[in-house]
Amino acid sequence: MPFTKTFSLRRFYGTKVDLRKLRPMILDRIEKRAHAYPVRSMVPVAQQVLLARNALIHAVSTLLHSIPLFVCKFCPEICIGEQGHLIQTCPGYRRRAKNRVHQWVSGGLNDILVPVEAYHLHTMFQRVITHDQRFDFDRIPAVVELCYQAGADPHHQNLYSSSSNLEPSDDSVHGTQSLSPEDLASVANRTFNAWEALRSGVHKLLLVYPVKVCKYCSEVHVGPSGHKARLCGVFKYETWKGAHFWMKANVDDLIPPKIVWRRRPQDPPVLVNEMRGFYGRVPAVLDLCTKAGAIVPAKYNCMMKVQGLSSPVNIKILQEH
């Protein structure tokens, strides 16, 4: 009979750690880590991100003077075009009903470029913000805060306008600014290029700098650990006294794409609820640029469903043959 040797795995729970002795070592390590930031090679990337954000804000504002934008009165749904769609996805007033037709009103810049704010810190590794200190720190756009921590100066002459909040937020954008189709397409192409440059630059910065987002709400914090302000508004978790549950953030957390229904040439003039499974779903900026005449890369064709069917009638015809 072969000899078998049995190993017993034991866990030792008696080891005690004196946190008072470890605290100076932890603080010293954090202070030494802070000297490595900002990373010099990432400063030009942060500057390009601010420039792209500035160009995107101005370009989208220009397009919205020529292309109508509608937003639902009771939910975040938006629609770009001459009139709102008839797709029944509205939860209604205070979510008392489901699958209702949206009630459309005029929208603005903040409905497409959704503002995401974060606490402004002088250094990324300063002490954690407590709940009582939540009013002692300014709130600025999260992308601007990330660029600030990456070494860019948002108050520079060429970058200053990009550090402000998105404006206008609630004003009507149904202006009568006359732009030729060529000029409109040129602005649309610049808008799409700025959108791509902004997202690409933020993605590069997130590979180097830590950014946190709450698991249950849209709160963002730029730094190695989230703040302690109890502001989480998800009532399901109110037993935790509003504390955020932090996790690693991605590009969509800092730059929400705001997905919208997209009308294709083969679709009806007004999108109806019965055929919504055939429509494309794209970021609002992409839909705005295509309606203005921009040419987008082929990688978005699957999302836009360019060659897709337009109605269930086509399926019946294919089945008969």
Rank of each mutant, 00 (worst) to 15 (best):
T4V: 13
K5Q: 13
T6L: 14
S8Y: 13
L9Q: 09
R11P: 00
R11K: 10
R20W: 06
L22D: 10
L27R: 07
R33S: 14
A34D: 15
A34K: 14
A36V: 09
P38G: 14
V45R: 02
V45E: 04
A46P: 12
Q48E: 15
L50E: 12
N54H: 15
L56D: 07
H58I: 12
T62F: 10
S66P: 01
P68Y: 03
F70H: 08
V71Q: 07
C72T: 06
K73N: 10
F74Y: 14
P76E: 10
C79V: 02
E82M: 11
Q83P: 03
G84P: 06
Q88P: 00
C90R: 11
C90K: 08
Y93K: 12
R95V: 00
R100G: 01
V105C: 00
V105Y: 00
V105T: 05
S106V: 01
D111W: 02
E117F: 14
E117S: 15
A118L: 09
H131E: 15
Q133T: 05
D136R: 15
D138K: 15
D138S: 15
I140S: 06
E145L: 04
A150G: 08
G151D: 08
A152H: 11
H155K: 13
H155G: 09
S161T: 13
S162T: 05
S163N: 05
S169R: 12
G175R: 10
Q177P: 00
Q177F: 10
L184W: 01
V187E: 08
A188N: 02
A188L: 00
E196C: 09
A197L: 08
R199G: 05
V202D: 04
L207H: 13
L207Y: 00
P210K: 06
K212V: 01
V213K: 09
C214W: 06
P224I: 07
P224D: 13
S225L: 09
S225W: 11
S225N: 06
G226D: 08
K228H: 14
A229C: 15
C232Y: 04
T239N: 08
W240P: 00
K241R: 15
M247A: 10
V251N: 07
D253K: 03
I255Q: 05
I255S: 04
R262A: 06
R264G: 01
P265M: 02
Q266G: 04
V270N: 01
G277Q: 04
Y279E: 03
G280Q: 03
L286C: 13
C289D: 04
K291S: 05
G293K: 09
A294H: 06
I295L: 10
I295F: 11
V296I: 14
V296R: 09
A298C: 08
K299N: 12
M303V: 07
Q307N: 09
G308Y: 01
Q319Y: 05
